[in-house]
Design a protein around this nucleic acid. Structure first.
Lengths: 340, 340
DNA sequence: CCCTATAATGTAACCGCTTACATTTCAAAT
DNA sequence: ATTTGAAATGTAAGCGGTTACATTATAGGG
């Protein structure tokens, strides 16, 4: 049988209160000699405090939940890593939940919230809907949202600066590389990151007075295959673009595949640029030019926001929601040349 | 204030026992009419059972822990996905912990065990040491180990069939492709997966009576850079191999880099094969021939073992430890040709 | 209408820890 | 020696559920 605090108290000849204090934050309030005796008994009996009982008494779980839309590929591991790092140093455990074949986002959220599994949750969602909003408003668990969705003023929010990233890349293509025929493969319409990236692209074209051609803006799905399909459509147009700006690196990889299949050589025949700067981009040949996103930083920032929130969840004066954008940069590879 | 079971009981005019029954597994034992009334009150008060209290009363946490050596790249997300899937359908939450700059494996394990955070843990470790063994033996939390380490008879274990995978690949190179000059870039000496892969390679050579050359067996570290260094050493030997068998795809990618840098063309000048079949392998040019490992399956199998263990952790007759090997296959790419 | 078996519900102890409040200890001050 | 106040420790009531056991309601048989 596992030893409990009573066993320790008995064997050490003190009360449970003293044991609890000797082991906890009030360490200092028990006489050194007593404490030593208690610690020795703990070691002898191999005592492991029961975390659950502690949590019940303290009314907290000591865990935070991370809800991801899916979990596949570098992007998500890097988010997890960032969150885990901060959670760990804040003494919280991390529970990860993501959609998969048998569970959708809503169930993930409910799993955490409905059963008060966690003290707070970090919610990464591509888009908001009525149902999710309703669920969130129903619970009082602190929430940090990772998403580029506008509105949602009542929540702490961290997002990639998608707009700026896409704008900068497009501007780079136009200003530095003198390109004008720039097509875009966008992400899903209902994905906010995708939407903002598209907006950035469009805004940059407008700024430099380059007409926007509908047939050069294709909606896709952020997958490699989606990139293949979209790019093959672009490359079969009578008037082809010189550069394809894929809204993420996966789709850029798809463009490489198609280009090769159709006998185009990057960057000479067609320029390709991406967004995200995930690890395997470096292995594409030629090396991919892409928008750099500090992915683990997203996780870190979100977690810090959440921990702050948890810290003063006791005090009644709620700090007003924060909204942090993670800035981006441009990684210059060899996948696009200066326009002739 | 959050509603508790007492609030519900009071408002519904029944006892807490009845509420508990109406909501739990003994649903059937309360009269339908009563149950309905209770459910209505729950909805009205937006009642969320407190999971912690439940756990304390039931003496379980409803969570399993997954300890990873690190969390970077596809390999680990796929493991997580497999584990998560099964954990979810078994109604367990998943807590992930991995080493990083501020925490090592031992701390990860202790975090779970010392504070009884989880009902069971899945432990993925590249190698065993005295300290870890000691910790594990000290706790009675059920454990499943993902590792190819021999011994450890007392634990459930799942491993990639590294030996067979490496053997098959080597045999394929010898028998089907008629190669004889096959070098190997191995993983770290203290990594059991690496060790078993090397053994499989050596065994196949022996089987086909091909002399083993020490200078063609290089120890490296499973990273891309390691693969670069190792392969540049191989390619600078006076007598060069025809094929390099890298013990993982990362190192194979390193070989590609080196080959290119030194002016060798794969597969004509040098054949390259890998191990793992991680996603980006498909993007190497030429397409990588490699050993396929069913990574999510590892997670699934491990979790099933753990859940089984948890299920009959009540019964005293402990089932004897299981040891499952996940079989591998060969993915034929274009990175190695038939010997001339 | 009573008896009895079974279904439905209630009572209260318990899970193992924390902590407000009460009590005791002890050293310094008088 | 007595007083006093801080330090050390103890007592016991929670935290919010579950569940063994006790009690009450209900229905069918005599």
């Amino acid at each position: 049988m596992k030893a409990t605090i009573y066993d320790i108290a008995k064997k050490a000849g003190v009360s449970t209160a003293t044991v609890s204090r000797a082991l906890g934050e009030e360490r200092e309030r028990v006489k050194p000699k007593t404490r030593e005796k208690i610690l020795k008994v703990c070691k002898d009996l191999n005592y492991q405090p029961n975390r659950i009982a502690k949590n019940l008494a303290k009314k907290s779980t000591g865990a935070i939940g991370l809800v991801l839309p899916e979990i596949q590929g570098d992007f998500y591991t890097e988010i997890i890593r960032g969150v885990d790092e901060i959670a760990y140093s804040g003494n919280y455990n991390l529970i990860v939940s993501s959609s998969h074949s048998r569970r959708n986002i809503v169930e993930s959220i409910l799993g955490f919230m409905r059963e008060s599994m966690v003290d707070g949750v970090i919610l990464m969602i591509p888009s908001m809907n009525r149902q999710i909003e309703e669920i969130l408003s129903k619970f009082l668990t602190p929430i940090v949202i990772i998403s580029d969705i506008e509105g949602l003023g009542e929540y702490d929010k961290v997002s990639i600066d998608n707009y700026q990233g896409a704008y900068s890349m497009t501007e780079y293509l136009i200003k530095s590389l003198k390109h004008k025929k720039i097509a875009a493969i966008c992400g899903p319409r209902d994905n906010q990151d995708a939407t903002m990236r598209k907006k950035g692209y469009v805004a940059a074209l407008k700024k430099y007075k380059i007409p926007i051609r509908k047939e050069w803006i294709i909606e896709s799905d952020f997958t490699i295959e989606g990139g293949e399909i979209a790019s093959s459509r672009l490359l079969s147009l009578s008037e082809k673009p010189d550069v394809i700006f894929a809204a993420n690196d996966n789709m850029a990889a798809g463009c490489y595949k198609t280009a090769e299949a159709l006998g185009y050589k990057a960057p000479e025949d067609i320029g390709i640029v991406g967004f995200d700067h995930i690890a395997f981009g470096a292995f594409l040949k030629p090396k991919l030019t892409t928008v750099h996103v500090q992915v683990p930083e997203i996780g870190r920032v979100a977690t810090n926001l959440l921990l702050d929130r948890l810290k003063d969840s006791g005090s009644n004066k709620k700090a007003s929601p924060k909204n942090i954008k993670i800035s981006t940069g441009i990684i210059i590879g060899d996948s696009v040349l200066k326009a002739k």
